[in-house]
Design a protein around this nucleic acid. Structure first.
Lengths: 186, 186
DNA sequence: AGTGAAGACTTCAGAACTAAACTTCGAATC
DNA sequence: GATTCGAAGTTTAGTTCTGAAGTCTTCACT
């Protein structure tokens, strides 16, 4: 019986307002309103990932695999992408994609073959089983998300979506979206 | 010069609305408004972490180390916590904390000593250098966050903070906050 | 054609994590 | 006072990532 501490489940955190108060105490220049938004965003996302993770173990796939399934489904039929492209979309290195694809091939979620018309390339394609898994996770995720947002009125939901979209546009325009990395950080 | 693919920088993603449209095409039952909020949240958080990461390498510490510094600062003077407590707050296993603390001790950010009044326990304490690092990161982070939210009116900021807090309260009440894990997932 | 350079993917070493076994100290029981 | 139980940390084995080097294919130039 795992007795003691946190098995990497949901983190145990201070009350949000207490944490903001602590920041103000230790760093008076901080804008509490800004900090509240940012901290809540971070925590919320973390909790959501934990929740998704729990649903995913029930279905027998990992969070990493889910990301790959999503990327493939989003491009639409015939659900094909190259490892490099997948790596870019998921924000990780090609090496990591190679390993992920290895695992997912053995689990039957995707297939990997050379592109005969351009033999440098490799094509990763969703299998029917992979698509089915995506559908199942999507159903669970959608149910969770509906529940998460149930307290919000339609107007609030729309406003939230609009504001988040605006913030996202700002970050994405500031970060020229990998592939055009000009700076070398190191 | 890192030539080809994404060196784990910012992920290259589809336009948000295109992605939502893809979900609707592949899974018509989905509520586009809900999905938009959730997707934007996830992306935004990801980009923010990339941005923080860039600032942190400039200061010579990692994202993991920053988390530990934050946790210690938030508890206030004398900036002390045990490894197990830290692990819970950060949502990772005690084993991982042991290693993080190892690294941070050698870097002079924290100290680790036995609690003489209760020799099972260990006390991790922030050093002056650690506190100084936290201050520096906090300045950079605050500047970034201010810029991120600059397009929002004060009313919008308040509304956003209020809505996010409400959502957070819901998830945190649904996830009884580790330590009281009743379910066994596995 | 023949060579060189660039791109796409993989392989290899090292870092950081999880899960589970282990060690040690303290407290309760007899 | 010795024994047993439980809690706190550390150690060990195995997984998944990053960064850098390596392999193979294609394209451009001579």
């Amino acid at each position: 019986m795992t007795s003691a501490a946190g098995p990497a489940g949901a983190p145990q955190e201070l009350d949000l307002d207490e944490q903001i108060a602590a920041y103000q105490r230790e760093f008076p220049e901080v804008d509490p309103q800004v900090e509240k938004v940012v901290t809540a965003l971070g925590r919320l996302n973390r909790r959501m990932n934990v929740a998704y993770g729990r649903q995913l173990v029930d279905l027998g796939i990992s969070n990493s695999e889910w990301e790959v399934l999503k990327a493939l489904v989003v491009v639409g039929r015939p659900y094909q992408l190259g490892p490099g492209d997948l790596a870019k979309r998921l924000g990780l290195t090609p090496a990591a994609m190679t390993h992920r694809i290895d695992r997912m091939v053995t689990e039957g979620l995707v297939t990997r073959e050379r592109d005969e018309s351009n033999r440098v390339r490799v094509i990763v394609e969703l299998t029917d089983e992979g698509r089915e898994k995506w559908l199942q996770t999507m159903r669970l995720a959608a149910a969770f998300e509906d529940e998460l947002l149930q307290d919000l009125t339609p107007v609030e939901r729309a406003a939230l979506g609009e504001i988040l979209t605006r913030l996202l546009r700002r970050v994405e325009s500031d970060q020229p979206d990998a592939g055009g990395r000009l700076e070398d950080l190191d």
